[in-house]
Amino acid sequence: MAYNQQHQHQVSHQVAKTATAVTIGGSLMVLSGLTLAATVVGLVAATPLLVIFSPVLVPAAIVLFLITAGFLASGGFGATAVAVFYWMYKYAAGEHPVGAEQLDCVREKIAGAAAQLKGRAEQYSWKN
């Protein structure tokens, strides 16, 4: 008898999940259809206005885009500069910011290559 009740509980749970999924899915389908219809109606209503005002709107949109892009680029470059200066301050103060070990390694490699090059130049130079 317990098995039958457990089976009925699982079936009713599955039916409830399915009914909920169908209800939510159907509601979302109706909303997407209404959104599509409203978009089409809005586009049909706005198209004549866009055509009439396009000689003004297109250049205005281009100018607005360029101004926005300029401000965003300027802010990004400024934030990057502040971050770089902060990193350099920490490095110069003796703290070890992220990447300091890599910078030290590269500096040692360059110093070693310069010393090697100096040694070779001294070997091939003419001594007076």
Rank of each mutant, 00 (worst) to 15 (best):
V82T: 14
D104A: 12
Q116M: 05
M29N: 03
F85D: 07
V15M: 12
T39C: 02
R107K: 13
G78R: 01
A2W: 03
A93M: 11
A61W: 04
Y91H: 13
A2V: 05
T20Y: 10
P48S: 15
R107L: 09
A92C: 06
W87T: 05
V40G: 02
T68M: 02
M88V: 14
W87H: 10
K127Q: 14
A83Y: 09
L50C: 08
T20L: 12
T68I: 06
I24A: 14
V30P: 00
G94Q: 10
A79Y: 00
S74I: 12
V40L: 08
S74G: 14
A114H: 12
H9R: 15
P97R: 02
M1F: 02
F53V: 15
E122Q: 13
G78K: 03
E108I: 08
S12A: 06
P55L: 03
A60R: 03
A38D: 11
A93R: 15
R120N: 11
I110W: 10
A114I: 14
V82W: 06
A16E: 06
T20V: 09
V41R: 04
L49V: 11
R107G: 03
S74H: 12
R107W: 00
A38F: 07
Q123D: 12
P48W: 12
V98W: 00
H7P: 00
M88R: 08
L57Y: 04
E108S: 13
G112Y: 01
P55W: 02
A60H: 11
R120M: 11
V44Y: 00
V11Q: 14
L64Y: 15
A37N: 13
S12I: 03
Q116H: 06
A83V: 04
R120S: 09
A92Y: 10
A114K: 06
T18D: 14
L49G: 04
S32Y: 04
E108M: 08
A60E: 05
L64R: 13
P55V: 08
L28S: 07
F53A: 15
S125P: 08
I62T: 10
Y86Q: 10
H13W: 07
G94M: 11
L28T: 06
V63P: 00
A45Q: 11
S54N: 01
G70W: 00
A114M: 10
A73K: 05
L72I: 09
T80N: 12
V41L: 02
G94R: 05
N128H: 10
S74T: 12
F65L: 15
F65C: 13
L57P: 01
T68C: 03
L72S: 09
L103R: 13
A115L: 04
Y3H: 03
T80W: 03
A16D: 07
I24L: 14
R107H: 08
F71S: 02
L34P: 00
V22F: 04
S32G: 06
V84Q: 02
A19T: 11
G112W: 06
P55I: 00
K17A: 11
E101H: 11
P97G: 01
V51I: 07
V41Q: 01
A38Q: 13
G25D: 10
W126D: 13
A92P: 01
Q8M: 07
T20D: 11
I110S: 06
T80G: 02
V98E: 14
P97T: 02
I24G: 13
G25I: 02
G33A: 07
G70T: 01
I62K: 04
I24K: 09
Q14N: 09
A61E: 07
A60L: 13
H9L: 15
H13A: 11
